[in-house]
């Protein structure tokens, strides 16, 4: 059974302005999914729907087969959640926040909590209000993982953290994955974190899933073709080729993303368009993101 299911989800904040427009997504148990998209592409909305914090205007959300709006407690007990703008009770001490979560989650793992308290050097007697942004996020992470959730949802968890704290975050998530086989859905602007963690990439664009594939296959079966301007106006000709996902006119050359490996793209350009001076190369995730979601140019 899928841990997360979104079926034909529509969600608009204002009439006629849909943030999610008929989105479908299923995540099987144990998979790690990296959610990408520009600001406003609908990542946070999607995550809030999964958490039951928002309701879809159309479509079905199922977490562990349940509707998170109907069974909030049953669902949330099995989820760990950290977001960039998460609010912890300001006037409680760190140890009280941890005690609060220990009481809420039946599967609380005391040894893991203690280990993380040590690793993060958390000041237990300090009030949340007094913590740095990084420390507060670490408290949130500890509370999210110490009950060994079946599903971990991270919404831009590393935003505003320094590289060392980001790495700690990553390692803690990987540990959970190793020990508990947790399903992970996370969004991040840090592509290297996504490339380290995710097996599967889901790229949202204009309220829909633009790309959904295994990370390895995105790196092996996609390519970027750089076609010199000397070839003239190329936009329509490139878009007409099999597997072309997007074309941008850049100052150095035409940039076109293809759903083919570099060699295949090269031979297509050669055979179908007679273009001999194109350079075709593998495309790092960040480049692909910029080429496909980076606006029209």
């Amino acid at each position: 059974m899928s841990v997360v299911e979104f079926r034909n989800i529509h969600r608009a904040y204002r009439k006629g302005e849909e943030v999610l427009a008929g989105l479908n997504l299923e995540i099987p148990a144990g998979q790690v999914v990296g959610l990408l998209g520009k600001n406003g592409a609908g990542k946070t909305t999607l995550i809030r729907l999964a958490m039951g914090m928002l309701e879809a205007q159309q479509g079905e959300v199922r977490i562990f087969g349940m509707d998170p709006r109907e069974k909030p407690v049953e669902v949330k007990r099995r989820i760990g959640y950290v977001s960039e703008d998460q609010i912890l009770p300001e006037f409680l001490k760190v140890k009280d926040v941890i005690a609060l979560h220990r009481g809420l989650f039946p599967g609380w793992d005391e040894a893991m909590a203690d280990d993380l308290i040590g690793r993060f050097s958390l000041p237990l007697g300090q009030k949340i209000k007094k913590l740095s942004k990084g420390q507060a996020r670490q408290v949130a992470l500890l509370c999210a993982v110490a009950h060994r959730p079946e599903l971990l949802i991270l919404d831009e968890p590393a935003g505003g953290l320094d590289p060392a704290a980001r790495r700690e975050f990553l390692e803690t998530s990987i540990r959970l994955l190793n020990e508990t086989g947790t399903t992970i859905l996370f969004s991040s602007h840090y592509m290297t974190d996504v490339e380290r963690m995710a097996e599967r990439i889901v790229m949202l664009h204009e309220g829909k899933v633009l790309i959904d594939g295994e990370l390895d296959s995105l790196q092996e079966d996609y390519s970027l073709a750089l076609v010199p301007h000397a070839n003239g106006e190329m936009r329509e000709r490139l878009l007409g080729l099999n597997g072309c996902l997007g074309v941008r006119k850049r100052s150095d050359a035409w940039h076109a993303v293809f759903r083919h490996d570099p060699a295949r793209t090269q031979s297509l350009l050669n055979a179908d368009l007679g273009v001999k001076d194109a350079r075709c190369q593998a495309i790092p995730l960040e480049e692909m993101f910029i080429e496909l979601a980076g606006g029209q140019g």
């Binding site: 592509m191 290297t192 490339e195 380290r196 990370l215 390895d216 790196q219 092996e220 190369q281 593998a282 495309i283 790092p284 995730l285 960040e286 480049e287």
Partner: peptide, 13 residues
Amino acid sequence: VVDPSSGVPVYRQ
């Protein structure tokens, strides 16, 4: 050593 941003899948590296 892995370089996640190289465009080469990590398992290949």
